[in-house]
């Protein structure tokens, strides 16, 4: 695992991607620090993180597109998978390297709050809480992108799909709020969303039995709720969309609140996509 971590981490800086990521990220962050904190004379660092999180959304697919797609393409996955290192450790080593890249970028940000002291009283707790939240959000996006890269051998395809998914998570909250809050809209909306998710899973896994059973169970439960207690569904469509809003969970951090539920949310996303990545690699070999 250590070998894989080292190789991946070095790989980011042997190619252009690692430098590009750091350069672009720090330049944009610097601009916002200049505008918000220095010109605006506002000592709270966390306000900078809001625009920067969009930059992160833009950068993540570039970092993760090669994750496994490149290995699949070059057939170097044969080396990794026959080396005696378990798939779990291979994926973990690679993920940690990507997390470390993000961490380096954020280490530079950690210097900023003490400097802002000249503009007034800095609340270190909210500033560093914001950076931690931001880091977790980044890790969640990275794991998501890594999973997509595990399912293909075309890195460009992986990047495009990751952009699509991230774009959706970005818009999700807003889209959810557009719908009416009555039970019937929620029922139809959720049913369609479920179908889309199941279809996506089916395309990735190519296992009709599993997707069939999942489809029956989930849609069945939904119909059950609609028939027995439709009031439960009221306003739920917005909630469902909200659950996809990875970026939306940052809101509290930006307001200076340390949101434990958001931390748990991000950790869950990371664990889920880590698990799915491992399964996707194993699945390719058991076919």
């Amino acid at each position: 695992m250590k070998a894989i971590f080292k190789k991946e981490f070095r790989g980011y800086f042997q190619g252009i991607i690692g430098w590009f990521f750091l350069f672009f990220f720090l330049i944009i962050t610097g601009i916002y620090i200049y505008v918000d904190n220095i010109l605006g004379g506002y000592p709270n660092f966390e306000v900078v993180l809001e625009p920067v999180s969009l930059v992160l959304c833009f950068m993540v697919p570039m970092v993760t597109m090669r994750f496994m797609a490149e290995e699949n393409k070059q057939k170097t996955d044969q080396l990794l998978l026959t080396s005696g290192v378990s798939v779990e450790r291979i994926v973990l080593g690679k993920l940690l390297a990507a997390f470390a890249l993000l961490a380096i970028a954020l280490l530079f940000c950690c210097i900023v709050p003490p400097v802002l002291f000249v503009f007034g009283k800095v609340n270190f707790a909210t500033a560093y809480g914001g950076i931690l939240g931001f880091f977790l959000m980044g890790c969640a996006y990275i794991t998501l992108g890594a999973f997509i890269s595990c399912t293909t051998e075309h890195q460009i395809l992986a990047a495009i799909v990751t952009y699509g998914v991230i774009f959706f998570t970005w818009l999700a909250q807003g889209v959810g709020n557009l719908f009416e809050t009555d039970a019937h809209t929620a029922y139809v909306g959720i049913a369609i969303l479920l179908l889309l998710v199941i279809l996506a899973v089916h395309m990735l896994m190519k296992n009709s039995l599993i997707t069939g059973i999942t489809a029956l169970l989930t849609e069945g439960t939904l119909i059950g709720i609609k028939l027995l207690k439709p009031s439960l569904l009221e306003g739920k469509l917005a909630d469902v969309f909200g659950a996809f809003s990875v970026i939306g969970k940052m809101d509290n951090f930006l307001l200076g609140v340390f949101d434990l539920s958001a931390v748990i949310y991000y950790l869950t996303i990371i664990a889920l996509f880590y698990f799915l990545s491992v399964q996707a690699i194993k699945k390719r070999r058991w076919n």
Partner: peptide, 9 residues
């Protein structure tokens, strides 16, 4: 393997 698993970079 048939295609040597090499990292070109």
């Amino acid at each position: 393997p048939e295609q040597p698993p090499l990292y070109p970079d």
